[in-house]
Design a protein around this nucleic acid. Structure first.
Lengths: 199, 199
DNA sequence: TAATCTATCTTTACAGTGTAAAGATATCGT
DNA sequence: ACGATATCTTTACACTGTAAAGATAGATTA
C-alpha cells in the first residue's frame, strides 16, 4: 500500500530541494532527486510546481526573504553609535556572511538560468534585498553633499556592485581553493576604495 | 558515403559551441547540439574534448584571451593624456562593453558550474584578465599614498568587485528587461563612489 | 605497390533528465 | 454512502552525457 497523501508535499519539496542543492550544488539539482528525497514519485512535483524552474524560483524567493531579514538585522543592530560609513561596511559584511553561510542558495539566487528572474514575486523580493542593502546610501549621500536622484541611484548601484562583486569573487575562490582565512575577516575596508576614487 | 574526416573538427566544435551558446544561452548549450552544428555525429566531440565541461572550458579560455586583449587595447589607447582615475574608468567601461558585446560568452566565463575553474589554463588566462584590469591600480595607489602590499591587493580586489559587480548587474537587467539605454552610457562615474567612501 | 597502422568519426547502448498524459487512491462534501 | 476533487503513481517520450565497439580514411612501412 502506497501513501497517496504526503501531508505537505509542497513544503517537503522545498526542503528537499534545499538539501539536494547543498549536496549536489546548483548544477546538480534535479526534479527527480528532489522528489526522491521527499519520498514521492518523480512526477509528483508537477502538481505543486509547474517545472524545475518553478520549484527553484520558489526556493529563491524564500531565500531572498531570509537574506533581506539578515541584512535588516545587521543594519538595525549597529544603530546610532556608528558612522554611516561604518554602517555601510557592516551591511557589506552581512551580505558576504550570508553568502558564505549559504553558498549554494546564494548562487541559486543569482544564477542566470535556473530560477525565472522575470517572475514577479522574485523581482519583488530581490528588489527588497537591494533596498535593504542600499538603505544607508541615501543618508550617506546627504552627508556627503551628493544630491540629485540620478546620482543617488548611481551611488546605490555602485555600492551594490562593489559588495556583490566581492561576494561573488569570494564564492569563486571558495569553490576553487576551498575555504580561505581571508573570508572570516569579512570584506576589505571599503574606505580604501574611497581613497582611490576620491575626486 | 560519409565523411570520416572533418579537417579541423576541434576548431569546428569550438565555433559551433560559440554559435549554440549565442542561440540557446549558457544553460541551453549541449554537446549533441554542438556536434550537429559542426555536422558530425553526437559522439564525435569525445575524441577532441573529454566532456562537455572540457569543451566549454576551452571556449572560456579563448574568450578570456580575447577579453584580456580588449582590456589591454582600451588601456593602451588613452595613455598619457588622461589621469589615472580616468584611465581606471576607461578600463571599467571596456570591461562592461566586452560583456555587453558577448553576453553569453561572458556569462560562460564566470559561470559557476559549466567550465572547470580549477583547470590550470583557465586559471592562468582569467588571472591575466584580472591583472590587466587592475593594472592601473598600483600606480593609482602610489599617487594616493596607499602603501603596503596587502592594502594594494585589497584595492585591486575592490576595484575588480565594483566593475565586475556592475557588469553582472547590467547583464541581469538585459536578460529581464532587454537592452537598456543606460548601458550605452557605460559605467556610472566611479568618482561618486569615491565621494561616498572617502575617509 | 600493397599491407598494416593509427587517427578520426559513426553506431549502438545505457543511465539519467524534464515533462506530459492517463490511471489509481484517499480525502472531503453532501 | 456515494460522488467529486485533490493528490500521487505509472507509463511514456524526447532529450541529455558518455562509454564501448565498429567502420573508414589517410599515413606509414615493408
Amino acid at each position: 500500500m502506497n501513501d497517496y497523501h504526503h501531508g505537505d508535499l509542497r513544503q517537503g519539496l522545498l526542503v528537499a530541494a534545499h538539501a539536494v542543492l547543498n549536496e549536489k550544488g546548483v548544477h546538480g539539482v534535479s526534479l527527480r532527486a528532489c522528489a526522491a528525497k521527499a519520498g514521492v514519485s518523480h512526477a509528483a512535483p508537477t502538481h505543486h510546481f509547474k517545472s524545475l524552474s518553478g520549484l527553484l524560483t520558489e526556493l529563491a524567493v524564500i531565500a531572498f526573504k531570509d537574506f533581506t531579514a539578515a541584512l535588516r538585522l545587521a543594519y538595525d543592530e549597529g544603530d546610532a553609535k556608528h558612522t554611516l560609513q561604518q554602517r555601510l561596511q557592516t551591511a557589506g559584511n552581512a551580505y558576504l556572511q550570508y553568502a558564505l553561510s549559504e553558498p549554494e542558495l546564494f548562487k541559486l539566487m543569482f544564477s542566470s538560468a535556473l530560477p525565472d528572474h522575470s517572475n514577479d514575486r522574485l523581482c519583488e523580493v530581490s528588489g527588497q534585498a537591494y533596498a535593504e542593502l542600499t538603505r544607508v546610501v541615501k543618508p550617506l549621500c546627504d552627508e556627503r553633499g551628493i544630491t540629485g536622484k540620478e546620482s543617488i541611484e548611481q551611488a546605490e548601484l555602485l555600492v551594490w556592485s562593489t559588495i556583490h562583486g566581492y561576494t561573488h569573487l569570494s564564492l569563486k575562490q571558495m569553490d576553487v581553493h576551498g575555504v580561505c582565512d581571508d573570508m572570516k575577516a569579512g570584506m576589505p575596508p571599503m574606505v580604501i576604495l574611497g581613497a582611490l576614487l576620491q575626486p
